[in-house]
Amino acid sequence: MEYDYEIQGGDFSSAGFASSHLKKILKQIGIEPKLIKRIVIALYEAEVNIVAHAYEGRIHVEIEPGQIRLEIQDRGPGIEDIEQAMEDGYSTASEEVREMGFGAGMGLSNIKNNSDDLEITSTVNEGTELTIIKKFK
């Protein structure tokens, strides 16, 4: 099964749409609740990253036998130093975003902690691509 979502940068009210939709689907197909929770955390954080940092983004979800693959691609400023961005507490979020309680520098580590495999590639001034894999066993 495959699902696609589009997200506009800056539109905070749309963050959570994809993860909420996917949560319902995973429930319907009988994925274990503990796994659903982890997948949903990872996807939500990825959605917020697009809204907080990028101009626009696309999410492609593939549910395969035994695993789920989330491909998150954005057009935006990119990440200069991925290792630094992965550090807890490091964030380049604006003051406005921080006031909403985002931008604590915990997003990427939340994604990493809740996935089995995370790949990040990024080009400055072009965008960032994340591939998240979570196995069902």
Partner: peptide
Amino acid sequence: DLLSDVMG
């Protein structure tokens, strides 16, 4: 009040 903290 940190949303990612609650999420995690």
